[in-house]
Structure formats: C-alpha cells, structure tokens
Amino acid sequence: MKFFFKPESGKAAYPGIFTGIAALFMNFIILKENRVVEGTGYSLFSSTPFWLPVAILLLIAAVLLNSFLKLSPGKQIINYIAGCLILSLTLTALVLSAFVLAIDQYAYGRISMSGGAWMLFLSSYLLMNSGKRENIPSLLKLLPWLIITAFALSGTMKDLGIFKEFGNEKKRFYEELGRHLYLSLRSVFQALIIGIPLGILAWKREKSRASVFAIINSLQTIPSLALFGILIPPLAWLSFRFPELRELGFKGVGQTPAIIALTLYALLPVTRNTFTSLSIIENRLLDAGRGMGMTTSQLFWKVELPIGLPIILGGVRIALVQTTGNTTVAALIGAGGLGFFVFRGLEQAAPDLILMGVIPIILLVILLDKVVGLLIKLLTPKGLELLYDSM
C-alpha cells in the first residue's frame, strides 16, 4: 500500500483525534459522597488502571497514522472500528473507576461523568462518522448500539449517578416515558388530520395558499413556553364555564394545552411537505393519466398521492422529531413527560437527574427518525426514486 504524507487526505478524522487527546487531560469523572455535594474530579489516568488510558492513546495514534494513508473504504472502516473501541473503553473506564476510587466506602456515593468522559464519547462519534456511511457494512453499524446496550443491561454501571437516579425513580420513569410518547404521537396524528387537507387546499387553491402558510408560519415564531402560556387562560375559562369539559380533562394546565400547542407546531412540516409533494408532479405524468381515461379523483389517488407519499412522510418525520423534543417543555405546565426529570433536576441542581430525562429523549428522537426513515424507504418504489432524481 502506498503511503502519502498528506494530512488533508485524512482530515475528516482530525476532529475526533484532537477531541480524544484533549479528553485525556481533562477530569474524566466526579466522585460524590451523595447527590448534592460538589464532588472531586479525577482524570482518566488517576481514576482507572494505567493500561486503559494508554490503550485509548494508542488507538488515537493508530487513527492518526491511518490518516496519512491514501483515502479508501478500508481506511474508513478502520476509523469506525477505532471509534467503537474508544466507546467501549470509555464505558469500561466508568465501570472500573468505581473500584479504583473505592466508592463503596460512601453509603450514598456515586460517580458522575465529567468533561473528559463526554469528550471521549464525542471523539468516538466523530471517528465513527469521519467517512461515508455507505462504506461501513450494515452489521458493523449496529456495533455501537450493541456495546451501549450490553453495558447498560450488564448491571456493572450501578455506581454511575444516572443509573442510581433511575433505580430510585424506575416506576415514575416508565410512567413519564409513556406520557411523553402519548403526547408526541397524538399531537403528530392530529397534525396529520389537519395538515394534509390544508396542504391539499393550498395546492388546489392559489388564493388560499398565502393565508394558509402565513398563519402556520406565524405559529412557528411563538416560543413554545409562550404558546403554552397563551393557551392557559382561555382553556381555564372554558373548563370553568363548562364543567362537563373539565370532567373530560379539558383544563387550563395539563395535557390539553400541551397537545394543542404541540399540534400547532407540527402543522408546518406536514402542510409544507404535502403542498410540495403535489406541486412537483410534472404535467406529463398527469397528461399520461388523463390519456388513459382517469378522472380527477382517480388521478389524485392513483398518481398524485402515490408519487407524493414519500415526501409527505418526510414531513411526518420532521414533525415527529420536532414534537418529541418540544414535548420536553410540556412538563412545565403539568403535562408530564420526560421533561419532568429535566426540570426537577434543574431545580435540585442534580445533573444526573437531568441526564435521566435528556438521554432518553435523544434516543427516542433517533429511534423515531430511523423508524420513519425505514418506512419511507420501504414505501418508495425504485421507479419513484429514479423519478425524484430526474426532477
């Protein structure tokens, strides 16, 4: 294999390399006697066996040497595997630090991740994504998730602060997770019922187009917390004026204003993508349908909608990701969800409790995005992919 001393040929790996090196000189973990004390920071070298940071350093050095090689798919796979190994070693370091620092001597002792740990996670992510994803074998793409799942289910990370918080709040966690999913999915479903007809209306009637998008776009300019606040007075008045609505859960605080606000926020991507999907269909395709004797209704259901469906689902994908994140704020008005842990952690100055809310939200967003992305791929015939490429 020919060598080239050209850093630019492997420059995509440099952010991961430099981030990993910086992590070795930062505090890796914080040892706390209990949840509320400030704790003492320890570097990777002082909190784990010596071989572990050396192994990470050697992996970073290997990636650096690899960056001088001629760019190739094999080189990208090496960087990807190195990122997976750094991820695995970082999680191993979190496990071993509890033994090295003898955390058992503290009745309520716990270990919290510090800047060095987060930088190593970032380094592994950057290295795994330093090349084209299509060059990585499909099975290998599952490796990071298998590593994280194995450590999470092994029980070896029980001294990590976030797992201690989870142990204390397990029942409440699953309840709030269910509420978070319910609020997100119901809001997106309602946005579909409203947004798709609005998109069709904007496409068919040019006079209505400006008004439809003016209203929907203006809703996006209102901060989420402000919109929740705006909805509280009228909903509270309605529940007071009509007791039967209150019995159905229609109140000024709680899930009702949250669902209304989240539905309004989800309207734009659904409506916009519905309008776009129908607008880009070329006249020649419609003329071909008319030439076959199709009616206007048949053209819509057999030509326009099937061609536009992947783009409409793209809007659903955006709405689902956006809504899952926005649902976090709904906890402030008593709607529940994983935001409950985020804001309670902020109130109590408990970073581990905040992470117990934030990390599942991130994982939910990634999971829902991948699921809808897979659905789009399955529902898009090869012929439509070629058609989109030609447009």
Rank of each mutant, 00 (worst) to 15 (best):
Y106R: 00
P223H: 00
G383W: 12
T323D: 06
I222P: 05
A202C: 05
F50M: 14
K32C: 03
W301P: 07
I148P: 09
E169A: 11
I30G: 05
R179M: 08
D389P: 12
L65P: 02
M1D: 13
L153F: 11
A62T: 13
T263G: 07
I260K: 07
V358K: 00
G116S: 03
P234R: 07
L225Q: 04
L198Y: 01
L309R: 12
L183E: 09
T156G: 10
R186D: 12
S211V: 15
A214L: 15
L386E: 15
G167Q: 11
L143C: 08
F50C: 13
A13L: 04
S130E: 04
V212D: 01
L386T: 15
A210P: 08
I280P: 07
I147Q: 03
K2P: 15
N273W: 07
Y106C: 00
G373I: 08
L192H: 06
I362F: 03
I194E: 06
N168F: 13
L363I: 12
A22C: 11
A319N: 02
K11V: 12
M294K: 08
P310T: 05
A93V: 02
I311E: 09
I361A: 00
G20I: 04
T92I: 08
G325H: 02
G199C: 03
T271W: 06
S218R: 03
Y265T: 03
S239P: 05
T92A: 10
S114N: 14
T296I: 14
A22G: 10
S297M: 14
L65S: 12
W118A: 01
T380V: 08
I162E: 04
T48A: 09
A210V: 14
G39T: 04
L192T: 10
P310N: 07
S9A: 10
K204D: 02
I311S: 11
S9G: 11
I29K: 08
G291W: 01
A350Q: 13
L69K: 15
T92R: 10
L89K: 05
E169M: 12
Y125W: 11
L245F: 07
V36K: 12
N27D: 15
Q105K: 15
F50T: 15
I193T: 01
L87Y: 02
R205G: 08
Q105V: 13
Y14I: 05
I86P: 02
Y174I: 09
A261R: 03
